[in-house]
Design a protein around this nucleic acid. Structure first.
Lengths: 128, 128
DNA sequence: TTTAAAACAGTAACTGTTACTGTTATTAGT
DNA sequence: ACTAATAACAGTAACAGTTACTGTTTTAAA
Protein backbone atom coordinates (compact mmCIF):
# COMPACT_ATOMS: atom_id res chain seq x y z
CA UNK A 1 0.00 0.00 0.00
CA UNK A 2 1.55 3.25 -1.17
CA UNK A 3 -0.12 5.96 0.84
CA UNK A 4 0.35 9.64 0.41
CA UNK A 5 -0.22 12.08 3.17
CA UNK A 6 -3.41 14.10 3.14
CA UNK A 7 -4.57 16.88 5.41
CA UNK A 8 -8.16 15.80 5.02
CA UNK A 9 -7.37 12.29 6.23
CA UNK A 10 -5.43 13.70 9.18
CA UNK A 11 -8.38 15.83 10.09
CA UNK A 12 -10.80 12.89 9.95
CA UNK A 13 -8.57 10.78 12.17
CA UNK A 14 -7.98 13.69 14.53
CA UNK A 15 -11.69 14.27 14.88
CA UNK A 16 -12.39 10.61 15.56
CA UNK A 17 -9.74 10.64 18.27
CA UNK A 18 -11.72 13.25 20.20
CA UNK A 19 -14.93 11.24 20.21
CA UNK A 20 -15.97 8.27 22.25
CA UNK A 21 -19.47 8.01 20.83
CA UNK A 22 -18.66 6.18 17.59
CA UNK A 23 -19.84 8.72 15.06
CA UNK A 24 -21.25 7.91 11.65
CA UNK A 25 -19.73 9.01 8.37
CA UNK A 26 -22.21 11.84 8.20
CA UNK A 27 -21.30 13.14 11.65
CA UNK A 28 -17.63 13.01 10.71
CA UNK A 29 -18.47 14.92 7.55
CA UNK A 30 -20.39 17.61 9.44
CA UNK A 31 -17.55 18.17 11.86
CA UNK A 32 -14.56 17.98 9.55
CA UNK A 33 -16.26 20.57 7.38
CA UNK A 34 -15.46 23.11 10.08
CA UNK A 35 -11.79 22.77 9.19
CA UNK A 36 -12.31 21.87 5.50
CA UNK A 37 -15.46 23.57 4.29
CA UNK A 38 -15.10 22.06 0.82
CA UNK A 39 -14.41 18.50 1.88
CA UNK A 40 -16.55 16.01 0.04
CA UNK A 41 -18.68 13.33 1.67
CA UNK A 42 -17.02 10.92 -0.74
CA UNK A 43 -13.64 11.84 0.69
CA UNK A 44 -14.90 11.13 4.18
CA UNK A 45 -16.21 7.72 3.16
CA UNK A 46 -13.07 6.87 1.20
CA UNK A 47 -10.81 7.73 4.11
CA UNK A 48 -12.90 6.06 6.77
CA UNK A 49 -12.86 2.90 4.69
CA UNK A 50 -9.12 3.21 4.11
CA UNK A 51 -8.36 3.86 7.78
CA UNK A 52 -10.48 0.89 8.75
CA UNK A 53 -8.75 -1.29 6.16
CA UNK A 54 -5.29 -0.48 7.51
CA UNK A 55 -6.52 -0.96 11.07
CA UNK A 56 -6.15 2.62 12.32
CA UNK A 57 -9.82 2.73 13.24
CA UNK A 58 -12.58 0.19 13.34
CA UNK A 59 -15.88 0.07 11.59
CA UNK A 60 -18.82 -0.98 13.71
CA UNK A 61 -22.13 -2.35 12.47
CA UNK A 62 -24.92 -2.32 15.01
CA UNK A 63 -27.92 -3.28 12.96
CA UNK A 64 -29.22 0.27 12.68
CA UNK A 65 -28.32 0.45 9.02
CA UNK A 66 -25.51 2.95 9.50
CA UNK A 67 -21.81 2.36 9.87
CA UNK A 68 -20.20 3.73 13.01
CA UNK A 69 -16.49 4.38 13.40
CA UNK A 70 -14.32 4.01 16.45
CA UNK A 71 -10.84 5.39 17.07
CA UNK A 72 -10.37 2.75 19.75
CA UNK A 73 -9.43 -0.44 17.94
CA UNK A 74 -8.90 -2.55 21.05
CA UNK A 75 -11.46 -5.33 21.37
CA UNK A 76 -14.44 -4.25 23.39
CA UNK A 77 -18.22 -4.58 23.34
CA UNK A 78 -20.78 -1.99 22.36
CA UNK A 79 -24.26 -1.10 23.47
CA UNK A 80 -26.78 0.68 21.28
CA UNK A 81 -29.84 2.38 22.72
CA UNK A 82 -33.04 1.36 20.95
CA UNK A 83 -34.58 4.70 21.86
CA UNK A 84 -32.03 7.38 21.00
CA UNK A 85 -29.59 5.36 18.92
CA UNK A 86 -26.67 6.33 21.14
CA UNK A 87 -23.71 3.99 21.21
CA UNK A 88 -21.65 3.29 24.33
CA UNK A 89 -18.65 1.18 25.20
CA UNK A 90 -19.21 -1.57 27.69
CA UNK A 91 -16.82 -2.11 30.55
CA UNK A 92 -16.67 -5.85 30.24
CA UNK A 93 -14.09 -8.43 29.40
CA UNK A 94 -13.86 -9.91 25.91
CA UNK A 95 -13.23 -13.62 25.81
CA UNK A 96 -12.92 -16.16 23.05
CA UNK A 97 -14.91 -18.81 24.85
CA UNK A 98 -17.85 -18.11 22.60
CA UNK A 99 -15.78 -18.63 19.47
CA UNK A 100 -14.39 -21.86 20.90
CA UNK A 101 -17.85 -23.11 21.82
CA UNK A 102 -19.11 -22.28 18.36
CA UNK A 103 -16.23 -24.15 16.74
CA UNK A 104 -17.11 -27.35 18.60
CA UNK A 105 -19.75 -28.70 16.26
CA UNK A 106 -18.93 -26.72 13.18
CA UNK A 107 -16.93 -27.84 10.19
CA UNK A 108 -15.15 -24.94 8.58
CA UNK A 109 -13.14 -22.25 10.34
CA UNK A 110 -14.68 -19.77 12.74
CA UNK A 111 -12.51 -16.69 12.81
CA UNK A 112 -14.41 -14.55 15.25
CA UNK A 113 -17.74 -13.21 16.27
CA UNK A 114 -19.61 -9.96 16.46
CA UNK A 115 -21.60 -9.14 19.54
CA UNK A 116 -23.42 -6.03 20.52
CA UNK A 117 -26.00 -5.28 23.15
CA UNK A 118 -29.19 -3.27 22.96
CA UNK A 119 -31.75 -1.82 25.34
CA UNK A 120 -32.37 1.56 26.98
CA UNK A 121 -29.49 3.79 27.88
CA UNK A 122 -29.38 5.57 31.21
CA UNK A 123 -30.98 8.69 29.77
CA UNK A 124 -33.80 6.90 27.98
CA UNK A 125 -34.56 4.35 30.69
CA UNK A 126 -37.60 5.58 32.64
CA UNK A 127 -36.55 6.43 36.21
CA UNK A 128 -38.77 5.27 39.07
CA UNK B 1 -53.88 -6.08 14.26
CA UNK B 2 -56.66 -6.91 11.79
CA UNK B 3 -55.10 -9.20 9.24
CA UNK B 4 -56.65 -10.42 6.06
CA UNK B 5 -55.64 -13.59 4.39
CA UNK B 6 -53.46 -13.37 1.31
CA UNK B 7 -52.22 -16.05 -1.03
CA UNK B 8 -49.03 -14.13 -1.66
CA UNK B 9 -48.21 -14.06 2.02
CA UNK B 10 -48.93 -17.77 2.32
CA UNK B 11 -46.59 -18.44 -0.53
CA UNK B 12 -43.79 -16.39 1.01
CA UNK B 13 -44.12 -18.18 4.34
CA UNK B 14 -44.39 -21.52 2.61
CA UNK B 15 -41.22 -20.89 0.65
CA UNK B 16 -39.30 -19.80 3.74
CA UNK B 17 -40.38 -23.00 5.49
CA UNK B 18 -38.56 -25.06 2.87
CA UNK B 19 -35.26 -23.25 3.30
CA UNK B 20 -32.65 -23.51 5.99
CA UNK B 21 -30.22 -21.06 4.43
CA UNK B 22 -31.83 -17.81 5.57
CA UNK B 23 -32.66 -16.26 2.22
CA UNK B 24 -32.74 -12.55 1.51
CA UNK B 25 -35.82 -10.64 0.35
CA UNK B 26 -34.53 -10.81 -3.19
CA UNK B 27 -34.14 -14.59 -3.10
CA UNK B 28 -37.66 -14.90 -1.73
CA UNK B 29 -38.87 -12.65 -4.53
CA UNK B 30 -37.12 -14.72 -7.21
CA UNK B 31 -38.65 -17.95 -5.92
CA UNK B 32 -42.14 -16.83 -5.09
CA UNK B 33 -42.38 -15.43 -8.61
CA UNK B 34 -42.58 -18.99 -9.84
CA UNK B 35 -46.02 -19.28 -8.25
CA UNK B 36 -46.95 -15.60 -8.56
CA UNK B 37 -45.28 -14.20 -11.68
CA UNK B 38 -46.71 -10.74 -11.05
CA UNK B 39 -45.83 -10.47 -7.40
CA UNK B 40 -44.12 -7.24 -6.54
CA UNK B 41 -40.85 -6.91 -4.66
CA UNK B 42 -42.66 -4.41 -2.46
CA UNK B 43 -45.17 -7.08 -1.52
CA UNK B 44 -42.35 -9.42 -0.56
CA UNK B 45 -40.75 -6.78 1.65
CA UNK B 46 -44.05 -5.77 3.20
CA UNK B 47 -44.94 -9.35 4.08
CA UNK B 48 -41.51 -10.29 5.35
CA UNK B 49 -41.62 -7.27 7.62
CA UNK B 50 -45.14 -8.09 8.73
CA UNK B 51 -44.34 -11.75 9.39
CA UNK B 52 -41.29 -10.74 11.38
CA UNK B 53 -43.33 -8.19 13.33
CA UNK B 54 -45.90 -10.78 14.38
CA UNK B 55 -43.16 -13.27 15.18
CA UNK B 56 -43.89 -15.86 12.51
CA UNK B 57 -40.38 -15.54 11.14
CA UNK B 58 -37.27 -13.74 12.26
CA UNK B 59 -35.19 -11.12 10.57
CA UNK B 60 -31.44 -11.60 10.81
CA UNK B 61 -28.81 -8.93 10.35
CA UNK B 62 -25.31 -10.24 9.79
CA UNK B 63 -23.38 -7.12 8.86
CA UNK B 64 -23.39 -7.88 5.16
CA UNK B 65 -25.80 -5.08 4.45
CA UNK B 66 -28.69 -7.39 3.55
CA UNK B 67 -31.52 -8.65 5.69
CA UNK B 68 -31.88 -12.42 5.94
CA UNK B 69 -35.06 -14.19 6.99
CA UNK B 70 -35.47 -17.38 8.96
CA UNK B 71 -38.53 -19.58 9.34
CA UNK B 72 -37.01 -20.97 12.53
CA UNK B 73 -37.75 -18.44 15.25
CA UNK B 74 -36.24 -20.43 18.10
CA UNK B 75 -33.17 -18.74 19.56
CA UNK B 76 -29.99 -19.98 17.91
CA UNK B 77 -26.71 -18.60 16.63
CA UNK B 78 -25.68 -17.98 13.05
CA UNK B 79 -22.47 -18.19 11.10
CA UNK B 80 -21.77 -16.21 7.96
CA UNK B 81 -18.99 -17.17 5.56
CA UNK B 82 -16.76 -14.24 4.68
CA UNK B 83 -15.98 -15.85 1.34
CA UNK B 84 -19.28 -16.99 -0.16
CA UNK B 85 -21.70 -15.16 2.11
CA UNK B 86 -23.47 -18.38 3.03
CA UNK B 87 -25.34 -18.45 6.32
CA UNK B 88 -25.53 -21.49 8.56
CA UNK B 89 -27.13 -22.36 11.88
CA UNK B 90 -24.78 -23.24 14.70
CA UNK B 91 -25.41 -26.20 16.89
CA UNK B 92 -24.66 -24.49 20.16
CA UNK B 93 -26.48 -23.50 23.28
CA UNK B 94 -27.79 -19.98 23.75
CA UNK B 95 -27.25 -18.48 27.18
CA UNK B 96 -27.97 -15.14 28.76
CA UNK B 97 -24.71 -15.03 30.72
CA UNK B 98 -23.40 -12.44 28.29
CA UNK B 99 -26.32 -10.12 28.89
CA UNK B 100 -25.92 -10.50 32.63
CA UNK B 101 -22.21 -9.81 32.45
CA UNK B 102 -22.83 -6.76 30.32
CA UNK B 103 -25.38 -5.40 32.77
CA UNK B 104 -22.85 -5.49 35.62
CA UNK B 105 -21.16 -2.18 35.03
CA UNK B 106 -23.76 -0.50 32.89
CA UNK B 107 -26.36 1.98 33.99
CA UNK B 108 -29.47 1.75 31.86
CA UNK B 109 -31.28 -1.41 30.86
CA UNK B 110 -29.74 -4.07 28.66
CA UNK B 111 -32.53 -5.97 26.96
CA UNK B 112 -30.57 -8.41 24.87
CA UNK B 113 -27.71 -8.92 22.53
CA UNK B 114 -26.97 -9.91 18.98
CA UNK B 115 -24.20 -12.36 18.25
CA UNK B 116 -23.10 -13.93 15.04
CA UNK B 117 -19.94 -15.71 13.97
CA UNK B 118 -17.88 -15.35 10.84
CA UNK B 119 -15.04 -17.18 9.11
CA UNK B 120 -14.76 -19.73 6.31
CA UNK B 121 -17.44 -22.29 5.78
CA UNK B 122 -16.57 -25.91 5.10
CA UNK B 123 -16.68 -25.39 1.34
CA UNK B 124 -14.56 -22.24 1.30
CA UNK B 125 -12.01 -23.34 3.90
CA UNK B 126 -8.89 -24.59 2.07
CA UNK B 127 -8.49 -28.32 2.71
CA UNK B 128 -5.02 -29.65 3.61
C1' DT C 1 11.81 21.63 -10.28
C1' DT C 2 9.59 18.15 -12.70
C1' DT C 3 6.57 14.42 -12.76
C1' DA C 4 3.88 10.23 -11.54
C1' DA C 5 0.36 9.03 -8.91
C1' DA C 6 -2.41 9.53 -4.69
C1' DA C 7 -6.01 12.24 -3.18
C1' DC C 8 -9.18 15.52 -3.94
C1' DA C 9 -14.20 17.90 -4.88
C1' DG C 10 -18.16 17.28 -7.08
C1' DT C 11 -21.47 14.47 -8.69
C1' DA C 12 -23.71 10.46 -10.61
C1' DA C 13 -24.85 5.83 -9.85
C1' DC C 14 -25.95 1.92 -7.19
C1' DT C 15 -28.24 -1.12 -3.55
C1' DG C 16 -31.43 -2.39 -0.30
C1' DT C 17 -35.51 -0.85 1.51
C1' DT C 18 -39.73 1.90 2.29
C1' DA C 19 -43.67 4.76 0.85
C1' DC C 20 -47.14 6.18 -2.37
C1' DT C 21 -51.15 5.42 -5.73
C1' DG C 22 -54.80 3.56 -7.88
C1' DT C 23 -56.72 -1.27 -8.35
C1' DT C 24 -58.02 -5.96 -6.73
C1' DA C 25 -59.04 -9.50 -3.24
C1' DT C 26 -60.78 -10.69 1.08
C1' DT C 27 -64.17 -10.98 4.62
C1' DA C 28 -67.82 -9.36 7.81
C1' DG C 29 -72.54 -7.99 7.88
C1' DT C 30 -76.64 -8.14 5.76
C1' DA D 1 -75.26 -14.52 -2.45
C1' DC D 2 -74.50 -9.26 -2.36
C1' DT D 3 -72.63 -5.27 -0.69
C1' DA D 4 -69.44 -2.48 1.52
C1' DA D 5 -65.31 -1.56 4.08
C1' DT D 6 -60.68 -2.22 4.00
C1' DA D 7 -56.48 -5.10 3.77
C1' DA D 8 -53.48 -6.30 0.35
C1' DC D 9 -52.02 -5.93 -4.06
C1' DA D 10 -48.80 -4.44 -8.42
C1' DG D 11 -46.24 -1.05 -10.05
C1' DT D 12 -43.35 2.50 -9.39
C1' DA D 13 -41.17 6.45 -7.27
C1' DA D 14 -38.55 7.94 -3.45
C1' DC D 15 -35.23 7.42 0.03
C1' DA D 16 -30.74 6.59 2.73
C1' DG D 17 -26.34 5.11 2.94
C1' DT D 18 -22.59 4.12 0.35
C1' DT D 19 -19.57 3.51 -3.68
C1' DA D 20 -17.74 4.73 -8.27
C1' DC D 21 -16.53 7.99 -11.85
C1' DT D 22 -14.22 12.34 -13.80
C1' DG D 23 -11.36 15.91 -14.28
C1' DT D 24 -8.36 18.81 -11.11
C1' DT D 25 -5.18 19.54 -7.24
C1' DT D 26 -1.78 18.00 -3.86
C1' DT D 27 1.85 15.26 -2.42
C1' DA D 28 6.49 13.42 -2.43
C1' DA D 29 10.17 10.97 -4.84
C1' DA D 30 13.69 11.59 -8.36
Amino acid sequence: MNLKHSRQRDSILEFLATRKDHPTADTVYMNVRQSFPNISLGTVYRNLTLLADIGEISRIRLGDGVDHFDYDTSPHYHFICSECGGVFDLNMEVTDTLTKAAQENFEGKIEGHVTYFYGRCNNCNPKH
